[in-house]
Write a protein that binds this DNA or RNA. Structure first.
Lengths: 334, 334
DNA sequence: TGCACTAGATTAATCGTTAACCCTTGAACA
DNA sequence: TGTTCAAGGGTTAACGATTAATCTAGTGCA
């Protein structure tokens, strides 16, 4: 049986409350009593029951982290940053990945709410105009911070990168490197991929280059879609001489397709990714990419969340947009 | 204010217990009452308070997952597999990474115990013969499963790969590919790296090749140590024609060093890693590696843990060793 | 009529802590 | 002598559920 405060209290013939006060270093307790309690607690190997404490204090010191995909290095790094940031404040993280499935996301949020998390950090995959999940969270007055993917029509905290700038930065870089037929392997139909596409369009327009419809190929999140997309793009001439990929994973897939086709990188096709994911510097051809401050997103989101949890009064939503930064490597060096 | 069972009970003029029974689908309740309760619960947007429930049932449906390093793709994949496996059973995962720091590991374990996790999965970094952390867990009768790194002198469940076989498999493969001067970038002084080294030694001995001390270079877990180690090895002739690396990350670092030195892979030096980490097929030279069934480790550990949690009687410790499997890619194809 | 039985609910106790008050004692001070 | 005050502690009631024991009709049957 595990020891409780009552065991200590009984043995020492003091009240449970006295024990509780000593253990919390609160209230007025004589040094003698304090010492006795602490000693006996150590002797019995006492450990606080956080569940019981949480029930009465109404705080679990747990935050929920909802991610679309765990194995993705981008989200893994975020998870790491979040866990790291909240630990000094006594918080633990409950992580849940919902595999890009909005329904699973909703049910996980509900589950985390039921488990009484003190706050949530969400990289949401909710479809457009589906705000009821968030409304439920707000109704329960649980602070939350969105990351990576903003949700339209929602007044909420957000930490992410300026995706339009990413698209522009990457495309402008390709232009500067002398590319004139610039393709884009775009991401999903909705969400941040739209902004990156817009940035791409914008950069091309600015420098007077034409946007060929056949140069924009639809895709998804992973490297498989990048591979397929690139193969498709290579089949329809004129073959591009530069491609901006929605993210690094897509770029990795694209790179495989390019090399398989016997083309040279960057000489035949220059490639730019986005994300600056771990180990994208040791690829077949080290990948030029746009850094989106992954780690900072996690840290800032965590700090923002803790600030909200600690604050008495409701604070008004805050948006943090991290400016992206181009990281040039071999895949565009020519 | 959030709704409680009492709110529902009061409104409906039934007892809290009746509500509880309906919500748990337990006990004999008339269809009429059941319906009323369910309807009203939905109307009030009721959500179970798991903290309160946990206090009385003494189960949190939470398991703790302790990892040495979060960002490492190997552990990220394990985390994913564990979370995935336990979800259908109603469990959530609290993840904690302790950055290879034994003291932090201990304090995190204590914290997770205080939070009343139902079980633990640990990839431990405890130094040799430091078992008191585990003893504390056992004393509390919390089931736990060790993964990846066995702990000597501890009668506990373990799920991992046969590291000796990894070393042998990798080295034998290099021998089969015609290498005769085979080096080893080894991992940390203790733990699984020792077995992999032993496997390497064993394979060389079997085929009558000599083990040169200068061919065994000490290192750590990450790619930085692989890079340094390889540079060192290249400086002391005779340069090896095949190298087995402690893990894929080390191999990635080694590959960078080899390419920087102007040598060709696999023609000058053939390289084998271990782990079959994600994306090691898209490296500068796709890496031959030994698959250690990462995903299966996570799944099996999670299943084993849940079995122990659910079982009434204490089961006796079970060890699962996954047989490794060689995955040949370009880095040794010659 | 009386007894046993059952379905359907209620009451009381419990889980381990904390929050909010209340009580005692002795010393200081007017 | 009486009042005040602080130190050091205790009492009681939550927190929001579950579990075990108990009650109350209604029914069947001898």
């Amino acid at each position: 049986m595990r020891t409780t405060m009552m065991d200590i209290a009984r043995d020492l013939k003091v009240s449970v409350v006295t024990v509780s006060k000593v253990l919390r270093n609160q209230g007025r307790i004589s040094d003698a009593t304090r010492k006795r309690v602490l000693q006996h607690a150590k002797k019995l190997n006492y450990q606080m029951n956080w569940v019981a404490r949480s029930l009465v204090t109404r705080r679990t010191y747990t935050i929920g982290l909802l991610l679309p995909e765990f194995a993705h290095p981008f989200f893994a790094e975020i998870a790491r940053a979040v866990a790291h940031t909240v630990r000094p404040h006594g918080y633990h993280v409950m992580i849940s990945s919902f595999e890009e499935d909005p329904e699973l996301e909703t049910s996980e949020v509900d589950c985390l709410l039921a488990r009484q998390v003190d706050g949530l950090i969400i990289a949401s995959a909710q479809p457009l105009r589906c705000l009821d999940m968030f409304e439920r969270v707000q109704q329960r007055k649980i602070p939350y911070v969105l990351i990576d993917r903003p949700v339209e029509g929602l007044r909420a905290c957000f930490v992410g990168v300026d995706n339009l700038a990413i698209g522009r930065l990457a495309t402008e870089h390709l232009i500067a490197r002398g590319c004139s037929r610039i393709g884009h392997l775009r991401g999903p139909e909705m969400g941040i991929a739209v902004d990156r596409l817009e940035g791409y369009r914008c950069a091309l327009a600015r420098s007077g280059l034409r946007v060929l419809p056949s140069y924009i190929v639809a895709g998804g999140h992973g490297d498989a879609t990048g591979y397929e997309g690139m193969r498709k793009m290579l089949k329809t001439p004129p073959v591009p001489d530069g491609v901006f990929c929605y993210n690094d994973l897509v770029a990795i897939g694209a790179m495989r397709a390019i090399l398989e086709a016997g083309l040279k990188l960057p000489d035949d096709i220059a490639l730019v990714g986005a994300g600056n994911v771990q180990y994208c510097d040791v690829l077949a051809v080290p990948l030029t990419t746009v850094d989106q401050g992954t780690c900072r997103i996690g840290v800032l989101a965590a700090e923002l969340l803790i600030a909200r949890i600690s604050s008495k009064r409701p604070m008004r939503p805050k948006t943090i947009l991290i400016p992206p930064r181009l990281v040039e490597r071999e895949s565009t060096r020519r």
